[in-house]
Simulated scan of single mutants.
Amino acid sequence: MRYASVTDRLAGLGGAKWALHYRARAMKAAGHEIIELTIGEPDVPTPARLIEAATRSMASGRTGYSNGRGEPGVVAALAARYSARRGREFARDQIMCLPGTQTVLYAVLRTMAEAGDEVLIGDPMYATYEGLIAQTGAVAVRVPLRPEHGFRMQPADVAARITSRSRVLFLNTPHNPTGAVLRPDDIRALGALAREHDLWILSDEVYEDLVFPNVPFTSPLDLPDLAERTVVASSISKSHAAPGFRSGWCVGPADFCTRLLPLSETMLFGSQPFIGDLTELAVSEHSPVAADMVDRFSRRAEIIARTLDGVGSLRVHRPEAGMFTLVDVRATGLSGSDFAESLLDRHKVAVMPGESFGSGLSGWLRLSLTQPDDRTVEAATRIAAHAASILGNAA
């Protein structure tokens, strides 16, 4: 039988990147005690107030069809939220609601790029980005994100890779997996390149509410001169500890949203009204869980740094936001994948190999910050012991 070419473009770009996580889950199900530092799932349940809102909504009959743009209440709430946060007016026709950030990014990129185009994307990158770009037929042009620059995208590196086929500058701030946050000057310089070369700016800002203390956050939406070319994607998955509800949105130019609407309707023809009602409540208020997550995640990042940084051959990159930290294990002589696989087998600690996030993290590990402090200490201690045993055997 014949298959669409998109299946070839996406081969190996889905769950294969999470193979170690799935193996760890299988070991856990088989009775092994695993310290899981793989995925970015919030460490608290979805707030009861949001669950109750969804329950009331379902009980009142809000279980019928919706529309492709989103329920009027949540669209209005998002327009108000972004107007307040960005200091300028956002209208309802600049909002589109879809099930989760992943679906948003899929649809937005489908609206921006096609075969023959190029999408400029930082490397390392979140594991699904490569597939999101490939599904459009466009080519991902990797822009190195370097440790010496705090993994922040450098305008000179972008400029060196722009061609006549460049269509989209894909940003992620705060960044997964590095926890880097672009500064105002970074955004201005990158925005100037986008204007000069007529590029779309797509900015995934799902970790906006999880920025650590004393770190400034800036969005391309803050700059009115970038308004005609900027689309921001986000959701309640991280900020409100509600990943299972799959509730996301994008904010951008009204004309862009008008063009995106038929694609959304063709894909989904609307999200669930009761989830829209839950999201309306969530985005109308400050998150009741985000501040405490920031406190815990920043504290655990410091725990890992104190335990591992400079111990033996290991180096730790401190994040500025989000729920992950990075450990450089290159001096052990192992790849991130080999280190992570043997760590799981010998010490029952599950971490993500850096290679799952691009060649820019070859020889690194990504550790989630979602385990309790004592388990985080224990995991870091086991990682240090594993590195010591590798270096001892090499000697």
Rank of each mutant, 00 (worst) to 15 (best):
G358P: 00
L326M: 08
V316K: 11
M352L: 02
G360Q: 05
A331P: 09
S356A: 03
S356R: 04
S342D: 07
F324P: 13
S313P: 15
L343D: 05
M352D: 03
F324T: 14
G312V: 14
G358F: 00
L314E: 10
L326Q: 03
L326V: 01
S335Q: 04
E320S: 14
L344H: 04
G358N: 01
L314F: 09
T325F: 11
V349S: 05
T325E: 10
G336P: 11
M352H: 04
L314G: 10
F339V: 03
A350R: 05
G322K: 11
S356C: 02
R330S: 02
G322R: 09
H317M: 13
P319I: 10
R318W: 04
T325K: 11
D309E: 12
A340F: 11
G310F: 12
K348E: 08
K348P: 04
L343A: 00
F357A: 01
G322M: 07
V349H: 06
E341N: 06
G360F: 05
A321T: 08
G333V: 14
V329K: 01
E320A: 14
G358Q: 03
K348N: 11
L314N: 03
V349I: 07
H317C: 13
S313I: 15
G336S: 12
H317D: 14
L314H: 08
A331E: 14
E341T: 11
P319M: 12
A321D: 05
S342Q: 10
M323I: 15
D309M: 13
M352N: 02
E355P: 09
H317P: 12
